[in-house]
Amino acid sequence: MEERREAVSEDGVLTRIGQAIMLHRAGDREEARNRLSALWHEIGPQGDAFHRCALAHYMADTQDDPQDELDWDLRALEAAEGFVTERRPSTVPAAGESGVAAAPEGSPGPRHHPLVALRAFFPSLHLNIAADYAALDRPADARAQLLRARASVNALADGEYRQGLRDAIHRLELQLGGAAGRTP
Results as ranks from 00 to 15, higher is better:
97 E>V: 06
158 D>P: 11
10 E>I: 10
70 L>Q: 09
160 E>I: 04
14 L>P: 00
37 S>D: 11
54 A>H: 07
81 E>F: 06
175 Q>E: 13
184 P>Q: 10
41 H>W: 09
109 G>L: 06
126 H>V: 03
57 H>W: 09
82 G>C: 05
87 R>D: 05
9 S>A: 15
55 L>T: 00
104 P>C: 08
141 D>E: 15
172 L>Y: 09
147 L>N: 11
64 D>M: 05
57 H>F: 14
169 I>V: 06
120 A>T: 08
164 G>T: 08
153 V>Y: 00
1 M>I: 05
39 L>K: 05
84 V>C: 13
154 N>A: 11
152 S>V: 03
3 E>Q: 12
106 G>E: 06
38 A>N: 12
148 R>C: 00
143 R>E: 15
3 E>L: 10
90 S>Q: 13
165 L>T: 08
104 P>E: 07
61 D>G: 15
124 S>D: 14
37 S>T: 15
169 I>L: 03
86 E>A: 15
134 A>I: 03
86 E>I: 00
120 A>P: 00
51 H>C: 13
34 N>Q: 14
115 L>Y: 14
155 A>M: 12
129 I>D: 02
51 H>G: 04
99 G>P: 02
174 L>Q: 11
57 H>K: 10
27 G>E: 05
73 D>N: 11
142 A>Q: 02
178 G>K: 11
155 A>Y: 02
83 F>H: 12
